[in-house]
Computed example of a mutant assay.
Amino acid sequence: MTRYVSSCFFTLFVLFLWRVEDIADACKCSQPHPQKAFCDADVVIRAKVVGKNAVSNAIKYDIQQIKTFKCPDQVIHAIFTASSPAACGVTLKINKEYLFTGKLETGRMYVTLCGYNPPWEDLSAAQKNSLTHRYQSGCDCKIIHCTSLPCPISTTDACLWMDWGTNNGQNLACIKSDGSCAWK
């Protein structure tokens, strides 16, 4: 009987390890360029996290909205995210300010790990300036993220982003001028 129990335990252990790997790999995405995140979002705001509550299978962060960069005429009082990083949930710190880019669904703002939600203090001066002056004007352009060479680009309405391990490209904005898009 002990051999049978040991065999069952070993089988369950192997299955558990296999399942843990699946869960750990559940949320895979690369960080978008700040302009792409801005253009793809329904809502872009600067806000301070003031509270946190578990709501069914989500986390609700109560926020104090400081500035609106892009939003359909409403004040956001809470941000919702999945309950775990494996499900692309964002972990935020209370009393810290963030830039939030998210989707608006049934009057609620949702953010994910695949979005762009950095602490406000981590943004460069160029990024903060682009939030009010440049990103919106470049939403007609596509930002193509190049992860390996060669990086072909065959259209004039796109900018090639090759930010391999540096943050330099995140300080630029892809703007359309004279019919074609270019980094500025």
Rank of each mutant, 00 (worst) to 15 (best):
K60C: 14
G165S: 11
A182Y: 15
D25V: 07
T2H: 08
S83L: 08
D22C: 03
W18H: 08
I59F: 01
I94Y: 05
T166Y: 14
C141W: 01
M162Q: 06
A24I: 06
L92G: 03
I59L: 01
F13T: 11
S84I: 10
P152V: 03
G169E: 15
Y135P: 00
S30H: 12
F38I: 03
S177R: 08
Y4M: 09
Y98C: 09
S154T: 14
T155L: 06
I45Y: 02
I153K: 08
Q170F: 15
A173F: 14
A173V: 07
E121F: 13
S148W: 09
C139E: 00
L160S: 00
Y110T: 09
K93L: 14
H77M: 10
V20M: 09
D122G: 11
P32N: 01
S83V: 12
S130N: 10
A47K: 06
P119C: 13
Q136G: 00
I63R: 02
C88P: 03
I144H: 07
C88L: 07
K67T: 10
T166V: 15
K96V: 15
S154M: 13
C29R: 05
L160W: 01
A37S: 11
S84K: 09
N57F: 14
N171Q: 07
S180K: 09
G102Y: 01
W18M: 07
M109N: 04
I63C: 08
K52N: 04
C71V: 12
D73M: 04
T132Y: 10
M1S: 12
T156L: 08
L104K: 10
S84Q: 10
D157Y: 11
S6K: 09
A41D: 12
C151S: 03
E97T: 10
I144W: 05
L99A: 02
L160T: 07
D157P: 04
N53R: 07
G138D: 09
Y135L: 05
